[in-house]
């Protein structure tokens, strides 16, 4: 069959068949993801103007890159970006390390022990966000929650609703929900690796720690890169957690506290959807740049 047609033609047929695996996905992807993005990109190039008392219909004008230039000079937007960038730089490594340690522990345990722990470790990830919020509002509450009095016993005066601790409170809320997710992705990668590879190292007398660090971690680098990039994106686009704390400490969490909060405010409170679209694109570019830098540092191009 194919082999008789010569290796090159055979390769080409195989590649074409391989490409066909991606067709169903890309048809839907273009329709449901690319089309809306193109439409939104278009919005960012226009601006709307009122007249009179502002109650009549608006005129739509082509604005070129005006919205982008305005966005680049928007000090409050960039202040939010800096705030979130700093938070990401501290929280993401922490969350990643914890998730990986958890995955490695689970992988190192016997099958029976792992089966016992898998479910409890994934509970926070399965708890829906609105319920997690209810739980942590209670636990954090300086008035009725248990954490403040508990820490007071240790001589620590902590108000999780205050402006000083807001990033700790947000970080823990995020970590509690995210660790299980990251852990599962990494763990599944570990579990797909044929066991023989680890066994031979153990036979050579390597300690479990050494196997984990020198063999397992390099094996899961790809999924680690993925979860880290997702964390970078998710953290730079953080929205619902700071929105919650807007009520707790509104003097700290202003309407443009994070980039996405500013975008929502521009779109739905200030009523400037065009500008909000431009800010969204700027944010996407920044997030893209941050992810690219990270790839570069880990020396692993995404398309390789």
């Amino acid at each position: 069959m194919a082999i008789t047609a010569g290796p090159r033609a055979w390769r080409r047929t195989a590649a074409l068949q391989g490409a066909s695996f991606t067709v169903p996905f890309f048809l839907g992807f273009v329709l449901f993801s690319v089309v809306p993005v193109v439409l939104a990109l278009r919005e960012s190039l226009f601006t709307q103007r009122s007249s009179g008392l502002g109650f009549g219909p608006k005129t739509i004008e082509f604005a070129g890159l005006d919205n982008f230039l305005r966005g680049l000079a928007d000090a409050k937007f960039w202040a939010g970006m800096g705030r979130v960038g700093l938070f990401a730089a501290i929280s993401i490594p922490l969350i990643q390390v914890v998730s990986v340690v958890m995955a490695l522990l689970l992988d190192a345990a016997s099958r029976r022990v792992a089966a016992r722990f898998r479910l409890p470790l994934l509970i926070p990830y399965m708890i829906p966000g609105i319920v997690a919020t209810l739980i942590w509002i209670y636990l954090y509450s300086p008035d009725v929650g248990p954490l403040t009095p508990f820490l007071a016993l240790l001589g620590i005066d902590a108000d999780f609703y205050s402006g000083e601790l807001i990033w700790v409170s947000i970080g823990n809320l995020m970590a509690w929900g995210a660790i299980g997710f990251n852990m599962l992705i990494v763990y599944a990668d570990l579990q797909s690796v044929p066991r023989e590879i680890f066994e031979s190292a153990r036979v050579d007398g390597a300690s479990e720690l050494r196997v984990a660090w020198s063999i397992k971690v390099p094996m899961i680098r790809r999924s680690l890169v993925l979860t880290t990039v997702l964390s970078i994106i998710g953290t730079l686009q953080i929205f619902s957690d700071p929105m919650l704390f807007r009520s707790m400490t509104p003097e700290t969490v202003t309407r443009d506290f994070t980039p996405i909060m500013a975008i929502y405010d521009w779109a739905f409170a200030q009523g400037d959807f065009n500008y909000a679209a431009a800010l969204s694109i700027i944010l996407a570019l920044v997030v893209g740049a941050a992810s690219a830098v990270f790839y570069r540092l880990t020396n692993k191009a995404p398309t390789s």
Binding site: F29, S33, V34, V35, P36, V37, L39, A40, E43, V229, L230, I233, Q237, F239, I260, I263, Y264, A267, F273, A276, A277, S280, I281, L283, A284, L285, V287, G288, S291, P302
Partner: peptide, 14 residues
Amino acid sequence: IGSFLVPGALLTIP
């Protein structure tokens, strides 16, 4: 990968 970067807020109306 590019699609990960797009903030959802941008896309609700389109």
